[in-house]
């Protein structure tokens, strides 16, 4: 990746080809989802309209729909405490939803920290910051394991003592206090210390949802992968770029076009920034290695 390639902004080709709106479609939808959910939570305390009570750890919508964060509930379980029926129903609903749409949809469509780290990633790219401390993407799974073992040993819902995700979300709804410093430190960490450091390497919440969505049917897929012109924009914009290569470049190895890695957050940014419309949302089952004939791709991409 030479410097010359980077003179162009990520997705500039897509904007030229498809127009700004279509080149930002999924990003806009995602922001609407993230801020919409936050807005629903804020309607109560700010305007007195109580549609949703609670926060991301547990919420109760219109007095009928309980939603429980399964990771927090699991930590609570390992301390030896079984929640109330309502809490358990909430776990079941949330788990079945993410089993279907992909666990890390939580990260990219719901989590408020995603906005912070996306902003850091964007600024990092704009400022051309290159250096980054290396840390394995497996680290988060170790942290996840540690929080579960730690919860069992201490009898405390361990990660909740410092969880920046719930700190920020709870802070915005119940009063921020010093929680903004935590959000700021994550922003600066991602910006200067480690590219995509928090969500991509450290956060056990994301790791948990990854595991949850291991077999989810809704996936980003690259059916038009033969149209790829190697512009690298998808790799540049992707928060988990390691997930793209097998699907995009795997045809000769007989690998299907569906992005199967559970690390994929289904954010859809690769779909946005691709000027050749290589990617789309699809199902994991349509994954035969050579599903689309080359001729069809060529005629379509024009």
């Amino acid at each position: 990746m030479s410097a010359a390639l980077h003179k162009k902004r990520i997705g500039a080709d897509a904007v030229a080809e498809k127009g700004w709106l279509r080149a930002h479609k999924w990003l806009i939808l995602r922001r609407i989802s993230q801020f919409g959910i936050l807005g629903l939570f804020l309607l109560g305390p700010l305007a007195g309209i109580w549609i949703v009570k609670g926060n991301l750890n547990f919420s109760y919508t219109l007095g009928v729909l309980p939603l429980t964060d399964p990771y927090v509930a699991l930590q609570s379980l390992t301390t030896g405490h079984v929640p109330e029926t309502l809490g358990l129903i909430g776990v079941a609903i949330v788990v079945s939803f993410y089993l279907l749409v992909g666990g890390r949809v939580y990260c990219s469509w719901v989590c408020p920290v995603n906005v912070v780290t996306d902003a850091a990633g964007w600024l990092r790219n704009r400022l051309g910051i290159k250096g980054s401390v290396h840390l394995s993407r497996q680290t988060r799974y170790w942290v996840l394991g540690m929080t579960l073992v730690g919860s069992a040993l201490t009898g405390v819902v361990l990660w909740e003592l410092i969880n920046p995700v719930s700190m920020l979300h709870r802070g915005l709804i119940f009063g921020l206090g010093m929680a903004w410093t935590v959000a700021l430190s994550i922003f600066l960490f991602d910006l200067f210390v480690m590219s995509r450091g928090w969500c991509g390497r450290l956060c056990p919440v994301g790791a948990f949802y990854s595991l949850l969505g291991q077999w989810s049917p809704v996936r980003v897929t690259a059916p038009q992968r033969r149209a790829c012109n190697d512009c690298m924009d998808c790799f540049e914009v992707c928060p988990e770029p390691q997930v793209i290569r097998p699907a995009l470049k795997g045809e000769e190895k007989g690998v299907g076009p569906v992005i199967l890695s559970a690390d994929c957050t289904n954010c859809g940014r690769c779909i946005d920034v691709c000027s050749k419309d290589v990617f789309t949302f699809g199902m994991r089952f349509n994954n035969s290695a050579s599903a689309v004939p080359l001729s069809a791709v060529q005629s379509e991409s024009k």
Partner: peptide
């Protein structure tokens, strides 16, 4: 180990008695 820091008790308190501990408070966060 049991509290999941959701704040529903805070919401349903008619007198605004309860609050959720902020990170800087000397009470377990949330």
């Amino acid at each position: 180990g049991a509290c999941i820091r959701c704040g529903l008790c805070v919401r349903d308190c008619p007198y605004n008695t309860l609050e959720l501990a902020k990170p800087e408070a000397p009470v377990a966060t949330g």
